[in-house]
């Protein structure tokens, strides 16, 4: 897919909490086509501490409104600055970057999208995409507590939503991999994005139940398009760049001890 460097405009910055912001970006030109799983490299201006772009998952694209959504979790100076952007401000982005989740050709496939924390971000766009292909979507979303479960009403637009929280304030208490759904149902495809320990636990479940499983990795990177070679992960084919060969990998390709 052709990559672009674009200056987009903040249409709205929705503060979801003091830790999370949803940036809704738009442009006077038509946004390019993007696929679920892909990401953008977002430039952060005005700080010598923040030298590099920040890799942010594509949360959602609304082509009818010409909107690109980015879900930002404040973890450091760069994301703090992004989360503080105001309406009408301009942001420079490289996109769309990376590969995408594979879409099953069989419409009767049973799919489960498992997200944790801010890792739920790409699963919204994936849910929309799968639903538009006529595939029934199930989301299993986990967080520390109810306040950390993001965009619940948005997820409900595209499928059935199951939740777990560590403190039991919403859904079943515990981790996503402890949810009763995983004991009671069998899926054909699992897609997951979230903290690495969570994704490894999901991968272990998928491996044990012989379920096809794709994970979205988030290694630190400088460029985002395969030249700096900083974001590699160890695979059966050697060190591969997460930014170009990923961020989505089938678990059979990774050298995870699961």
């Amino acid at each position: 897919m052709k990559k672009f460097m674009l200056d987009l405009i903040i249409k709205e910055n929705v503060q979801l909490s003091n830790q999370y912001a949803l940036l809704i970006l738009t442009s006077s030109d038509k946004l390019p086509e993007m696929l679920p799983g892909q990401f953008a490299e977002v430039r952060v201006d005005g700080s010598s501490e923040v030298f590099l772009r920040r890799a942010i998952s594509i949360n959602y694209v609304d082509y009818s409104k010409n909107e690109l959504w980015l879900l930002i979790q404040v973890v450091g100076e760069g994301t703090k600055r992004l989360a503080a952007l105001k309406s009408a401000e301009s942001v420079n982005l490289l996109l769309p970057l990376g590969n995408s989740f594979s879409i099953p050709s069989n419409k009767d496939s049973k799919v489960l999208l498992i997200g944790g924390g801010v890792g739920v971000a790409p699963l919204l766009f994936l849910g929309d995409f799968l639903k538009s292909k006529g595939i029934e979507v199930n989301f299993l979303l986990g967080a520390r507590s109810k306040a950390d479960l993001l965009q619940m009403s948005e997820f409900e637009r595209f499928g059935t939503v199951y939740t777990t929280t560590e403190d039991g304030s919403h859904g079943e208490k515990g981790y996503v991999t402890q949810h009763s759904l995983l004991r009671e149902s069998k899926f054909d495809h699992i897609y997951t994005c979230g903290p690495t320990p969570m994704m490894k636990a999901v991968a272990a479940y998928a491996h044990k139940t012989n379920t096809n499983c794709e994970v979205s990795l988030e290694n630190t990177m400088a460029c985002g398009f395969g030249v700096c070679l900083c974001c590699v992960t160890d695979t059966v084919d050697g060190h591969l760049c997460v930014c170009t060969e990923g961020p989505v990998f089938n678990i059979t390709k990774l050298k995870w001890q699961i």
């Binding site: 010598s48 501490e49 923040v50 030298f51 590099l52 290694n219 630190t220 990177m221 400088a222 700096c228 070679l229 900083c230 974001c231 590699v232 992960t233 160890d234 050697g238 060190h239």
Partner: peptide
Amino acid sequence: RQGNQYPRMAETPSGMLNAVGLQ
């Protein structure tokens, strides 16, 4: 060459460190 193990990069004030190792 496979280069060095991840992590290979650190952002620093007005710069970055890399340790790709000629992959």
